[in-house]
Design a protein around this nucleic acid. Structure first.
Lengths: 215, 215
DNA sequence: CCAGTGTAGTACTGTGCGGTACGATACGGT
DNA sequence: ACCGTATCGTACCGCACAGTACTACACTGG
């Protein structure tokens, strides 16, 4: 904030050519430390050490630990959930489309990084509801949106009959990844095997189509 | 734990008549503070103040903050999930049984307390996998177990056809409470209304029966 | 080669916490 | 009435951290 002000007051600045890269490094390191210790126990000094930076550098770019955290969350959320925007462009069967959508969702959602992200978001959303809102909006809300849009199309085409589309979409996604995600978040085991993912996806999709598909 | 040992070694002790109550108070206050601030940011001093106790009292009963936390988690987990043991004793229709099971699960899982519990568990399980295991074992694992047992019975009776019973059970429960729980944990809104609960339960159960029920 | 700017490194301040120690007190059992 | 024990209240220690300040260096553009 003070920095921004200063930049503005000098109008044009030529200082930040490599700075984008460096900013990414700084935020990645911050994420690493935040994810490892949790918000409160994470120390900005530790981040500085790992990033071979100094606390001053962090504090010159982000006026407080809290705002550093927010910036990090925003960057990571975009990073993890952006790839989902393109899903379901497919033109194949309904079943195949949902099947491959499911696999993609599991693939992208069950990485160590996104698990850490989810974990810390769940915790910090308690006292910062805007964090929760941000995650809904830029995070898993995207996933839901793309699925709902697809489902509505298929309803118009007469291939599906769903009364509460949003709820149905949420329930499909939850059936897909609820337990695997919980297992990861609770440190109860390794990532599911490809085989387990397939079984889960197939069962969820079948259940969904049995209830809402044309017959 | 040390207390228990001491009791045992002296065989019969007459010291702790009121102590059970007091222990509950101490752990409840600890939970309050832990839930409010998160593990790291919670202070034992604050707990002592709120409980009109002294830090010494806490430290005489629990040798460290971490073990206090563990004791608290254990107590809360039992407290929240014990009532689930009796579920599904019902003798009514399959659909009605699942329906009422679903409503009970939502009822018991979506209280402010159990949401706080889940939240902090998700966070702390990262570096203490035994916390995660404890929660699985004494917590939502009970829920799963009772459902699986019931489903197996109904499979034997020929009312259900399920290949992967455990996965099916998990997916049913996730479809039931995934989104409402997430909304609570992310501080995205109020508890679902009775009407929303009913819709979610009905849709989940229908989906489940459409896939696995006799037809 | 120089001026300007960002930053690593480090030292410092203030604060708050985990954990300990201890005196005063209340109370139940003999 | 006396003893033993648990606890309260409080003061204390050591430490770690957020945030600040300053110095020395490195780079970049002219």
């Amino acid at each position: 904030m003070p920095k921004t002000t200063r930049l503005k007051s000098q109008e044009v600045s030529l200082r930040f050519r490599l700075s984008d890269e460096r900013e990414k490094e700084l935020l990645d390191t911050a994420a690493e430390v935040f994810f490892e210790y949790g918000y409160s126990a994470a120390s900005v000094g530790e981040m500085a050490n790992r990033a071979k930076a100094s606390k001053g550098t962090y504090y010159s770019r982000y006026p407080s630990k809290k705002l550093l955290f927010a910036a990090m969350i925003r960057a990571r959320t975009d990073q993890v959930y952006e790839p989902l925007a393109e899903l379901l462009r497919t033109t194949s069967t309904l079943e195949n489309a949902l099947q491959s959508f499911g696999m993609h969702v599991l693939e992208v959602s069950l990485t160590a990084d996104s698990v850490s992200l989810v974990r810390i978001l769940y915790m910090e959303a308690k006292n910062s509801p805007e964090i929760g809102r941000m995650f809904k909006q830029h995070g898993y809300g995207r996933l839901e949106a793309v699925l709902v849009k697809y489902l509505r199309q298929k309803i118009r085409d007469g291939h599906l009959q769903i009364e509460h589309v949003t709820i149905a979409a949420e329930q499909l996604v939850d059936a897909l990844m609820g337990e695997p995600m919980r297992r990861m978040v609770l440190s109860l085991g390794q990532l599911p095997t490809k085989r387990e993912k397939e079984i889960r996806v197939r069962n969820a999709v079948r259940m969904f189509l049995a209830a809402y598909g044309e017959k």
